[in-house]
Design a binder for these strands. Structure first.
Lengths: 192, 192
DNA sequence: TTGATTGTCTAGCGGTGCTAGGATCGAATC
DNA sequence: GATTCGATCCTAGCACCGCTAGACAATCAA
């Protein structure tokens, strides 16, 4: 059975290559540039090979999104644990979130702007997504305020951050004063 | 010169037809379904005619966005003027904004999610966009709080609403409890 | 060695946004 | 009223897209 195992390993490795290449290409030139032809050429296989790993382009986006969610969860927890006190923790969380969105725009798009065929806010939501939300909730839960449902509070705070991230990057908001807006959000929304 | 005038009128009328048809088609079947071929067929002209009015699909999206911005400004001002007191005014404003996004998803996308080739937050920003932002600022300015820049406050509040609107519609946030989230946003962000 | 299975590729389908170039039509001139 | 001539519009086609059928080669089991 060793031959089969080797083949499985190779297959898994190629799948990782596809996802990594798609992500790289998307970060370099945007998701519009991630066509199945270009992607196939970069991994040095023909187009149909992609379809033996993923149902279609959408699923590839979804795979990048899951990868991103896992990384974001790590980054959020690291920022939170390095801060002292609820107020500082929330501020660090918010800055880290926006920083992640700015540094990995294509991954952020895959997670929250594009259709990666993933289920959100449901029972069958993939674990990495649930966990990224959990990472937010861990820090935000302690500043929701008395009698305020922590889940709903986290959702609202997250939505505000998401709005800032997307509108800023799309040039809808001037890039200056981002720090000030985050400050306002934390000051007003968090109860310390 | 009357012949030329008639031609100009007809041309302007056809341009309105293009924008209205694009909007209608987008609301019915989403922007992906708005292809130049389908659009041309619906207005009963050939494809190249579209390009004698607009540089490309992007500009058509931009035209729909401007139309939407004007309508949104009217809706926001109507809601604000019908409410009594700053707190109620802001709440009505927020609800109207989200309501507009929900009722006109394609127009909302054209305004804030898609690339319509429009300049935002700049001097050469088209008037309807500036005015829609002004409509927000008129009501939000009075609850920014002492010493808080009203423009930046409005931007932050708007971003929060935008986040709620987009995440909810994309299925990233559960559709229930939207009203509760708005309530929280208004309660915490607005200083009354 | 043979036959079946697996894996990969070439080629192609129907679609996209956009455009070059020819046909047509109406207005202005003789 | 016939004839230019310019504006207007359409046909046809480009290069690209996501995706797939079917041929082909390599590998395995008998």
């Amino acid at each position: 059975m060793s031959v089969q195992e080797r083949k499985q390993r190779e297959r898994a490795s190629r799948e990782r290559l596809i996802v990594a290449t798609a992500r790289e290409l998307a970060e370099q030139q945007g998701w519009d540039a991630v066509t199945t032809r270009r992607l196939a050429e970069r991994i040095e296989y023909s187009q149909p090979v992609l379809y033996s790993h993923f149902r279609g382009k959408r699923e590839i986006i979804g795979a990048v999104a899951l990868e991103g969610a896992a990384e974001m969860a790590v980054a959020l927890r690291a920022a939170a644990s390095a801060a002292d006190g609820p107020r500082a923790r929330v501020a660090a969380l918010a800055r880290t979130y926006l920083d992640f969105a700015e540094r990995n725009p294509a991954v952020y798009d895959a997670m929250f702007r594009l259709d990666g065929g993933l289920a959100f806010a449901r029972e069958d939501t993939p674990e990495p997504l649930k966990d990224a939300f959990a990472a937010l909730l861990e820090s935000l839960g302690e500043v929701a305020g008395d009698g305020v449902h922590t889940g709903l509070f986290t959702e609202t705070f997250w939505a505000a951050l998401h709005g800032l991230a997307t509108l800023t990057r799309a040039g809808r908001l001037p890039p200056e004063h981002t720090e000030w807006r985050v400050e306002l959000l934390v000051d007003r929304l968090a109860v310390v």
